[in-house]
Amino acid sequence: MTPLPTFPRLFCLVSERDDLALLPALADAGVDGFQVRAKSLATGDLVALTRSVAAAVRVSGAVVVVNDRLDVALAAGADGVHLGASDLAVADARRIAPGLVIGATCRSRAEVVAAAEAGADYAGFGPVFATSSKAGLPASLGVAAVTAAAGTLPLVAIGGISAATAGEVRAAGADGVAVIGAIWRHPDPLVAAKELVAAVS
C-alpha cells in the first residue's frame, strides 16, 4: 500500500460541469484532495479531464484520485482511485496498481475492516447526512456511525457535509471530508472552500 504522507483533510469532487478555472485557487486555499467524478464522459475525455485537474492543483501539493476507473487513473497519472461497491475489487486494484492510493466506499465498520484487509488506503464513509448530489443513496448514517467506524483506516466522510458540520464530523473521528455542493453550489466557491478548510483544520 502507499499511504499518503499527509492525508487530505478536504476532498473536492470535480466533474466536467464545474468551473475548472477555479481549481488552482481552491488548491491554494487549502483544498488538498480532488476526486475526478464524471460518470457520463467517454474514457478519453475522462483521461483528459483528470490530466487537466492534476495540472491545475498539483503545484499546490494536492492529491488527485479518480472515481471508479482504475484504467483512467493509471493512464492519466493520477495519485489514486476511489472504488465503489460495484467497481473493480480493492484487492484486484491493489494487485494491478501497487503504487496507487486506493479508496473504498464503505457504510459500516465491518466494510471498513474488509476494505483494509483487501488493501485499501482509506475509506470513503457515508452518506453521513442527507444529500442530493447522488441519486439512489441509502439513508444517512449520522455522525455516531463515523465514530463507530473510525480507527481502522483513514475515514473520508461524505454526504451533505457543509462548513457548519465539517468540524463536528472531524471531531467524531473522520480524518477528512469530501464535498460537492458545499463548494460548487455556493455563490462563491472560493469563499466556501476557505470556510471548509478552516472547519477541518
Rank of each mutant, 00 (worst) to 15 (best):
V36N: 02
V66M: 08
V57Y: 07
V57C: 02
P5D: 15
E16D: 15
V64M: 10
V53D: 05
D19W: 09
V63G: 06
S40G: 01
D19V: 05
T43I: 06
R17T: 05
L46F: 01
P3K: 12
L41N: 02
R58H: 14
D19R: 13
A38G: 06
K39I: 09
V14K: 10
S40F: 01
A38W: 09
V31S: 01
P5H: 13
L46N: 00
V57K: 06
T6Q: 15
V57R: 04
L20V: 03
A42R: 15
S15G: 14
D32Y: 13
G61R: 10
C12L: 15
V31K: 03
E16I: 00
S15M: 11
K39V: 04
D45M: 05
T2N: 15
A48K: 12
E16P: 00
R17H: 11
D32S: 12
A21D: 14
L49F: 05
A54Q: 04
V14T: 11
P5Y: 13
L46A: 02
E16G: 00
V31R: 03
D45T: 05
Q35R: 03
R9Q: 11
P8G: 08
D45C: 01
S60T: 03
Q35C: 04
V59E: 15
G44S: 09
L4R: 13
L4I: 10
R17M: 00
V59I: 08
R9K: 15
D28H: 13
P8L: 12
A54H: 01
G44E: 15
L20M: 07
V66R: 05
P24L: 08
T2R: 14
A29E: 05
V36C: 03
P8H: 12
V66Q: 10
L22R: 10
G61A: 05
D19T: 08
L13V: 13
L22N: 01
L13A: 03
K39W: 10
V57L: 03
C12N: 13
P3D: 15
S60E: 14
V57S: 01
G33L: 06
